[in-house]
Design a protein around this nucleic acid. Structure first.
Lengths: 208, 208
DNA sequence: TGGAAAATGGACCAGCAAGTCCAGAAATTG
DNA sequence: CAATTTCTGGACTTGCTGGTCCATTTTCCA
């Protein structure tokens, strides 16, 4: 917490984390060495261990946290403003576009899929990320309910959990196969599920 | 293809692959050495390279294929017989139960999430696995359509893609956080989506 | 301004893991 | 049954990688 670093120190530390994140996204955790990171960030071995005394594990954890924060940031402001069908659509487009262009090396992949297991610290980071992500989706769904756009009977937490799972799986499949069909299908179907929940009136008008 | 192995050779090779699969599930790709595999399978270094001349990569690929085959097998006969709501429910229970008990070390995780990127060979295996999986889900949905249980208007491929994504994401989250809520929510919601598609009649009776 | 603390450079070390090699045992086959 | 091939054991090599150490420079602050 209380960092005994000077301004210069903090800058260097940040440079290391950001550079490491880049390398990790490209190469994957299993194929990245400290020397790769050293080279990319223009630092020396001693700096790495100066800022991360516990070595690689600590650095990896810092990168995981850094990436986790960025993932939600990258979806703003849309993710925080899901109160109309249009805003949901915008959010959907941002997510799809982002992951499609990032393709293989995206933050969540590197972090979530690889670091996921193993270290308990990483697990905590992922768990917290999922919790916040789902909370924001659920909040958006409640906003729709408040506007009468979605049935008040809808189990919001469950719908949000399902949508989040679909999104994650879509990204995972995109990263493994290069195909974004599943990601789009998952999100669109999830949103349609919300639309359809609204009582018994015909749930079709606005088209994807 | 044409293996120049004797019966004994084939048995040894199979022993290596199966044993390696076990170790890989437990430890993850990044933390498994050839010596671990050697120890577990009771083989020598030269045997490993005798049966997998290209070394670790080739062995890992063989394990990936082995696991991919098992994943679909494990869901049978249910996955091949999805022609009623009851059979869908049975399949759902099998999947949830299997992944819940397997927890961290499940075949698809080790294979899919870790090997996924990197080697192009692994990517092909994953792609083919996803293709087959989705095809079987789609086939089940068409069976429901044929029985009049699901609207003929349903875009079966898209619904199957979405369900598959939800399942994958649910498993990924389960493996990363230890919580199966998302997996259940994703599958159940996916099935409800099918139910709800049937015309305009009230889509609620059987509860999850 | 001068001493302490922080920051940096990079040589060095130790362990480990993939892969090589060859000798010898088991088996296949003509 | 002898020759050839396959199979197995395990010592050895080689390269890499995380981590240590200490000397040097820069920054801080009283």
């Amino acid at each position: 917490m209380a960092d005994a670093f000077t301004a210069k120190g903090r800058a260097t530390r940040a440079r290391i984390v950001e550079g490491a994140a880049l390398v990790l996204r490209e190469q994957g955790v299993g194929f990245t060495t400290l020397d790769d990171i050293r080279g990319r960030t223009g630092t020396s071995k001693s700096q790495l261990f100066h800022y991360f005394p516990d070595g690689k594990d600590e650095l990896l954890l810092a990168v995981a946290q850094f990436e986790a924060d960025r993932i939600l940031e990258n979806q703003q402001p849309h993710l925080g403003q899901l109160d109309s069908w249009e805003s949901w659509q915008r959010w959907r487009d941002v997510v799809v576009e982002r992951y499609e262009t990032q393709g293989d090396h995206c933050p969540s992949g590197a972090l979530f899929l690889h670091v996921g297991r193993a270290r308990p610290g990483a697990r905590a980071i992922v768990t917290e990320l999922m919790r916040q992500w789902q909370a924001q989706l659920a909040r958006g769904m409640r906003a729709l309910q408040a506007g009468g756009l979605v049935s008040a009977d809808l189990d919001v937490e469950r719908a949000a959990a399902a949508l989040l799972a679909g999104l994650q799986g879509g990204v995972a499949i995109l990263m493994s196969t290069g195909d974004s069909t599943h990601l789009k299908a998952a999100i669109d179907t999830g949103i349609e599920h919300l639309r359809a929940s609204r009582g018994r009136e015909g749930p079709r008008e606005g088209e994807a």
